[in-house]
Amino acid sequence: MKRSGPLYTLLGGLLLALFMLSLNATTGTGNSSYEEGSSGGASPTPTSTAEPSGSASTEPSGKPSKEPSKEPTKKPPAKAEYAGRTDDDTSAVSISIRDGKAIAYFCDGRNTESWLKGDVEDDGSMRLTGKHGAKLDGTLRDDDKVRGTVDIDKKTWDFTADRAKKPSGLYRATTEVRGAEIDGGWIVLPDGQQVGILKEDGKPQKAPRLDPETGAVPFDGGTLTARPVVP
Rank of each mutant, 00 (worst) to 15 (best):
G5N: 13
P6Q: 14
Y8D: 10
T9W: 09
L11V: 15
L11T: 14
A17K: 01
F19C: 07
M20V: 13
N24S: 08
A25H: 07
A25C: 03
T27Q: 15
T27I: 13
G40D: 08
G41F: 13
S43G: 05
P46M: 11
P46I: 13
S57W: 07
T58D: 03
T58A: 11
S61P: 02
K63F: 08
P68Y: 04
P68D: 08
A78D: 15
A80N: 11
E81L: 15
Y82Q: 03
D89F: 09
T90L: 09
S96H: 00
R98S: 09
D99I: 01
K101T: 08
G109K: 01
N111C: 01
K117V: 01
D122G: 03
D123M: 05
S125M: 04
T129R: 13
T129Y: 10
K131Y: 03
T139Q: 13
L140A: 01
G148A: 02
T149L: 08
V150T: 05
I152G: 02
D153P: 00
K155L: 10
T156D: 02
W157G: 05
T160Q: 06
G169T: 09
Y171P: 01
R172A: 09
E176H: 13
G179T: 11
A180F: 06
I182S: 08
G185N: 04
L189I: 04
G192H: 14
V195A: 07
L198D: 03
L198I: 14
K203P: 00
K206T: 15
P208L: 04
L210V: 00
P212H: 09
G215T: 03
A216M: 01
P218N: 12
P218Y: 08
F219L: 10
G221H: 06
T223I: 04
T225I: 09
A226N: 03
